[in-house]
Structures are given as structure tokens and as C-alpha cells.
Design a protein around this nucleic acid. Sequence first.
DNA 1: CTGCAGGGGTAAA
DNA 2: TTTACCCCTGCA
Length: 288
Amino acid sequence: MKSDKNKLEVTIPDFEPRHIFECGQCFRWNREDDGSYTGVAHGKVLNVLKDGEKIVFDNIVEGDFEAVWENYFDLKRDYSEIEKQLSKLDETMENAVAFGRGMRILNQDPWETLVSFIISANNGVARIKGIVENLSERYGPELGEYKGKMRYGFPEASVISSLDEEDIRVCGAGYRDKYILKAARAVSGNSGWLESVCGLDTEDARSELIRLNGVGPKVSDCILLFSMKKMDTFPVDVWVRRTMEYFYLHKKSSPEEISAFAEAYFGDLKGFAQQYLFHYARQNSIGK
DNA sequence: CTGCAGGGGTAAA
DNA sequence: TTTACCCCTGCA
């Protein structure tokens, strides 16, 4: 590990920024001209560049690698082993893993993830990113300038709860404005509730999340997988459904049938399997 | 440039 | 089980 001021260079195996940031799990990371990515997470601005075997973290605050980023990037987990296990299942997984090698499942902030995936319903990635950015610029905290641009953190639930529907609508959220507002009021009015959901087992956490308006089976699974370390979930969206039907089920199947198959076939690794499959399918338009 | 489908689901009928 | 939903983006 080598450090400069605001810069930290670390050798990390299985770390490919493109696959981590463009596999559809996060919405606040953007590619720079030099191939690095700049993003905001947990109220911090960071730039990540892959330089051969080395990962260069820029704009990093002393101590934050251990305090924040090690967990955020899931660095304690052995992805080589996961990739090996999944690859030997069949040729599809072998291809999916080969394509997305270096992907990692992030540990994002539950509140931000909850809102982001409420927005994701019936929506494309480009627009989701725009809405999340608008919410942050209008109502989030200033985090200082980086590369000549002011950066903003995602607004707290208490801040959003004091807005009205129109304030959220102007960010481009469309009919989801009501859902976001209700979620903000539920979360800020029940202090500790969202944190307590993280502590429940997957089944119970899921039923809690689904009580929120705008959160159904798919959105709840994404929140569980991308912000609550519930790796035994298998979010079934249109891409995963098409891919699973195409490669495994060979017929039109309901999300429940697909989940059941995934449970039996991928077991404990189904969360990771989902992410490799989703990324592989979407980037290559498989099944469409 | 204008027009028009279609989108990483969900709630309500 | 089916249908409407905001509105931005992509592509005729």
C-alpha cells in the first residue's frame, strides 16, 4: 500500500471498475476521460482508477480506506473463489463470469439504495441516474469541488420528508414522487427502523421492505442485495428473466419459478450469480 | 427536426 | 390477470 496526499494505491485482485460500476447496482459513478470513475458514496467523493494490478483511489481521506471503502467495495470477500465456483457450473456461467470478471457487489447506503430502486421501477439506467443526481444537487449536502465540479451527497430521509410531491416531481421522478415522499416519512418518522431491517433475516427483511409503497419483490431484493449484505437474494428483472428462460428454463416462467430454480441451482451464491448474469445479458442484449 | 415507442415494476382495478 | 403510469432517451 502506497500513499500520497489524497491518493492511495492498493493491489487488489478481482477489481474491475467498469464491471463494478456499470453492472447496474449503483447510479452515482461516472466514467472520466482517462477511464477512471468518479462517484459519491456514504457522503464522500472518490475517484477510482485501475492501473494494471494496482487500484488508485484519489481524493481519499486518511483512514477512510479502512473505515469506509474496504466495506463498500466488499474487499474482504474472496471473489476469485466465487468466480471459480460459478464458472464450473455450466458454460453459461463460465461465459458470464469471464465477461464480468472483477465485478463486486457493493455495500451501499440502505436509504439511498431504497430510493434509487423505487425510482428504477419501469425506468432505464440513464434516467435513474439523472433523477438521483437531481435529488442530490437540489436537496443533498455540498461535499466540496472535485475536478472543477461541486459534488453533492444523497439527501437524508429527514430532509426529503419535509418536501412536498412537487419538489420531488421536478427532479424527474414522475409518478414515483409519492412513493419517495412516503418512504422518507416512514424512515425518518421511525428512527432506527431501516437499520433494524438490516439485522433481520432475508425473509423478514423482505416483508418489511415490501410494506413500503413502490417497493415490490424486485425492488426489495435489490435493496437487500446491494445495501444489506443479503447475498441469498435473486432479483428477477426483465433481463434476468429473459436470460434464465433462454439458458435454463426454456419456457416462459414467472419470477417465482425463476427464483425457485435459482435457489436450487445456485444456492448460497445466487446473489452473485444474478449479478454476473444480469451484466452479461444486458451488455450483450442476450435473449432480446 | 418532429414523432413515437419503450423502459432493470408496482399498485390498483 | 390486466392495465395505467411520468417522462427521458433512443431511433425512425
